[in-house]
Design a protein around this nucleic acid. Structure first.
Lengths: 332, 332
DNA sequence: TTGTATGCGTTATCAC
DNA sequence: GTGATAACGCATACAA
């Protein structure tokens, strides 16, 4: 593969001139420049980023290590990151940990070795020490969609407690009093926060406490099973509305309810969380709590870039606000 | 940031020894090895991949330039690629062109400069000359989920004509005779092929021709609009079943049908295409033509790796077979 | 405006 | 088993 040296020889100029054409074209006469460009084209010259980067010390790429590429929520966050990256002339590499700690660690290590400008990550465990240790070794790290107690790291997240209250307040407004919460396990901080918010909303309105249908994961399958349990309750005590910890659960619940011949929202109103694309695309469009996904990504990318080239960067824990999107599943 | 040199100084050994600890640990005595490893830990030493790669000429990463990261179909393909990559100890970088030609070109250029081992790409235009030109410049390229006439490139795709026949045969088996095809624009090769297959299936069975409801894109929104048009037809001539060019269209159609108070499959049976996760998760689980997504990714990754390190690699155009997954939307 | 020389951090080859 | 040294491809400071 042709290098600058080959190009120089082919064009009959010196190596330095070729480099100038590449990096400071204004300093070279139009004639030689054309000659060199011609040579590059004919030889199929491609800059060697490794060498260039070794020399200059820094790369023009950011990376996002996502928790689950199959979850549309994260791809939307990635799109937000990409917007910021692109406007700063950075490329974005996405890596998928797929919820596996070993993969997350592997990618992190690889990216640090690559000396990327910054790493955005939605970690499996936001308190895991290896995150801060990456940052300490010199690669800026920003936690996305999770909070961390570690103040040596920036993070951008959304207020889940508020989101929980919004969901419940909406249901109360629609006249529901017996409300179920579908979600779990409680070891997931976000699930916990959404439930806490829901309870706060109920308490503030003096309504009865929520019925918790705990799930083992936040998946469609678990949503279906929660639906079976919910519909198995005696009619008189069965909740008239369900608030699900995310949209996958809500879609599963919806499926189960429809399969049972009941109607949404007449027999059961449903509120989801995340407002993924498929929430609005469901047969009964789902009311959902929307997180500002693009902004989540954009802010995180801005923080990581700031940390990378602003000497007096201060770490921040940004918290964004969710918003309720009302659709047929609660409005009828 | 500490380099091998610093580690050597700190450990009181020479630079070559540090390198040996890193690359051929068996050649160094346990005692010095521990000393060196200790030094590395204390200094927070991280290999510089750029230098390493410059020296060795090759990197351990693959990249997948995807057409649309928000479409779950492609993230599933990516997961298949990742399986193969991982088992070969490669890292996978995913880039999202988001259907934009400039972004695709930008990522391709960046990746070639990075000298990645191979590039997998689902291109906007599989005949675009820049794809082959990347390959000619020395980075193996494999086209994923598209075919190309260019025989200097490998590709892995799925037989869409067969998929179209499968869908229609299933509907004929269920007793449908008046069938609609929802999809478009016909400029998309895959849409065209699926329609061709559908027509072949009908012709083979001596059934009447298909009613084409052409859409401007393969999105949920367009599916809804197609639904309006379909339901606007006089009852007597209205098709009793619809075959959609992809699942997004099918989900939109389903939404419209349900919103109109009609029932699936009683009033209208629906078959989608791709079998994305949300097809099975829909309120009325969708029958769909499944493409072997993981295998698509795996085979493509295998091809790109073979091209990268097998001197007598021969380019291949692999075509995989789709399969029909029957669910409630046609079975009732 | 163009050419020359040096170094980026690592690996590999060869003496020791 | 260990240490010195050249080379990878490029960018830059400086000399011409």
């Amino acid at each position: 593969m042709a290098g600058v040296k080959d190009v120089a020889a082919y064009a009959g100029v010196s190596l330095g001139t070729v480099s100038n054409v590449l990096n400071r074209p204004e300093r070279v006469s139009p004639a030689t420049r054309r000659k060199v460009e011609q040579a590059m084209a004919e030889l199929g010259f491609v800059r060697n980023e490794a060498a260039r980067h070794l020399r200059s010390g820094r790369s023009r790429t950011l990376a996002y290590v996502m928790l689950d590429a199959a979850n549309p929520f994260f791809t939307d966050v990635a799109a937000g990151i990409e917007e910021t990256a692109e406007s700063g002339h950075f490329s974005l590499y996405m890596c998928n940990s797929g919820q596996r700690a070993d993969r997350e660690a592997g990618y992190l290590a690889h990216l640090v070795e690559q000396r990327v400008q910054g790493i955005l990550v939605t970690p499996i465990d936001p308190e895991a020490p290896h995150l801060a240790s990456v940052a300490r070794r010199g690669t800026p790290v920003v936690i996305v969609d999770r909070t961390t107690r570690d103040e040596s790291l920036c993070s951008v997240a959304v207020d889940d407690v508020l989101g929980g209250s919004l969901a419940v307040e909406h249901l109360l407004d629609r006249g529901h009093q017996r409300i179920a919460f579908v979600g779990g396990p409680e070891s997931i901080g976000q699930v916990r926060d959404r439930l806490v918010g829901a309870r706060q909303g109920l308490a503030a309105a003096g309504a009865p406490d929520i019925t918790v249908i705990e799930t083992l994961a936040t998946t469609v399958r678990e949503g279906r099973q929660a639906g079976e349990r919910l519909l198995g309750l005696a009619r008189a005590k069965r909740p008239t509305a369900a608030f699900c910890a995310n949209d996958l659960l809500a879609l599963g619940l919806l499926q189960q309810v429809v399969a049972s011949g009941l109607r949404v929202p007449d027999d059961l109103a449903i509120v989801g969380y995340d407002d993924i694309y498929f929430a609005g695309a469901a047969a009964v469009p789902l009311t959902s709590v929307r997180q500002p996904r693009h902004e989540l990504g954009r802010r995180a990318a801005e923080l990581v870039l700031d940390e990378a080239d602003n000497a007096d960067h201060v770490h921040q824990q940004v918290v964004l606000l969710p918003e309720l999107v009302a659709r047929t599943s609660t409005l009828g």
